[in-house]
Amino acid sequence: MNDDRLIAVVRRALESVAPELAGVAIEPSQTFRDQFEIDSMDFLNFIIALHQQTGLDIPEADYPQLTTLEGCLGYLRPRLASGGTA
């Protein structure tokens, strides 16, 4: 899956948590929490949405890697390289 599609996956997950973010630019290296007032409940819902789109399990230990767009891409790239559902 190329980066554009990965970004679309992350965006969809974010917008499922905060619909008002549709069309808003995401700063790749800044945390979602700092950019969009994402709290722990939002973050869990974001992980749930990623899980539902990708089928990945995403254990809690991996959460720190998923707090920025850059981090999400780095995390998803290898895991979805060979045929993850999307």
Binding site: M41, I48, H51
Partner: peptide, 14 residues
């Protein structure tokens, strides 16, 4: 408790 569970089944400490 969360370890073996899919994200929708997980608890927050809250």
């Amino acid at each position: 408790r969360n370890a073996g569970r899919a994200p929708p089944e997980r608890l927050l400490a809250m």
